[in-house]
Design a protein around this nucleic acid. Structure first.
Lengths: 188, 188
DNA sequence: GCGCCCATGTAACTAGTTACATGATTCA
DNA sequence: TGAATCATGTAACTAGTTACATGGGCGC
């Protein structure tokens, strides 16, 4: 393959669970992997079209009474094949761009109180996301996709990453707030 | 400001430490915040030009014997002003795209051994980055920028995030490898 | 009647990466 | 002599976001 477009593998992977429309894909992604992956319609629809041209998916139209018709996409054998090739290929170096840390790095330019507020908001956001992870956990547990038996619980392994991550963030925020607050008290 | 280009704030922030060339900026970024932020030349040079047009930085040419000349950029009062405005503004929602988790989420499509290898590599990468963080720590500690006294140690707070993060990743990898290995043994 | 959800899609844009071109110096 | 570092920059590209357009159904 000439180049790598990760979105296309994300969509193929989701379609390996079950045939879906672009709209369904967005919802499914938001309700399962949103804490580490996101897609938007402006990207999903063009990529689906491209996947269809490449014969990695097929489209059929589902007519529903009372609702708009849907374009349902199914993964093909070729699609499964490129997907599993990608799974076996090395992971690209992950590039993080954490705006909160960038601001904190330049924090000496501003009031300590400003940075305290940023970190406090960051902590609240992490706590909220952690709660949402539990919703996702429920969602995964109540869905019975007839996943192959004797396979590891991959979805739960991913979820576990999220739990570790957000708990770590909360812990770091607490530590950081302690240091910032102490510095602020000293300034007065 | 009409739109947000985070790179321009990253560059302005770095220039608030000291005047630098585009080349210096890249090196400085790589040696201080690379574990949570990165920039490349193809982006740095055009953004510097834009910042100069907007009068957020000024350029002067430094002639060096035996070496090519450098364009040294300094932040202006206006530049400092937009930078501190940005510091006070809310942090954008951080969007994570973790390819390792995306692959793991579709791991049931492939051999357990394939996923074990991915996680093992991920662990090794995290261990390597953690070691690099200690180098950065040394670099920060040995640089004496005459940072304002009675300010919190912002650089160390950022670094501490990195330590927490990569230790968490290593822990999660260990847990995950345990589960995958057990599943693999059961399959045989 | 209003707002929300369902459903698909495009256009315009911003952001960011990769590859390339240039040319000098230093070091092995 | 060849590789690495210093130093700047552009062109072509890929990726991803935002805003907009359309239109029906449902619940309050």
């Amino acid at each position: 393959m000439a180049h790598i477009n990760t979105t296309q593998y994300a969509l193929l992977g989701m379609l390996s669970y079950m045939p879906m429309s672009g709209y369904d894909l967005k919802k499914f992604i938001d309700q399962s992997i949103s804490f580490f992956w996101s897609e938007n319609y402006g990207h999903i629809y063009p990529v689906l079209k491209k996947l269809e041209q490449e014969k990695f998916v097929t489209k059929r139209v589902e007519h529903n009474q009372g609702k708009p018709s849907k374009n349902i996409y199914s993964i093909t054998q070729e699609g499964l094949s490129v997907l599993t090739d990608w799974l076996a290929a090395p992971v690209q170096k992950e590039i993080y761009r954490l705006e909160i840390l960038l601001k904190l790095f330049f924090g000496y330019l501003t009031e300590t109180g400003t940075m305290i507020e940023k970190v406090a908001v960051h902590k609240k956001t992490a706590e909220k996301t952690l709660r949402e992870l539990l919703d996702i956990e429920n969602h995964i547990n109540t869905q019975h996709h007839d996943l192959p038996k004797n396979k590891p619980p991959y979805q739960l392994l991913c979820l576990n990453y999220g739990k570790h991550f957000y708990n770590m963030v909360i812990k770091w925020c607490d530590e950081t707030l302690g240091i910032l607050q102490a510095a602020k008290n000293n300034q007065q």
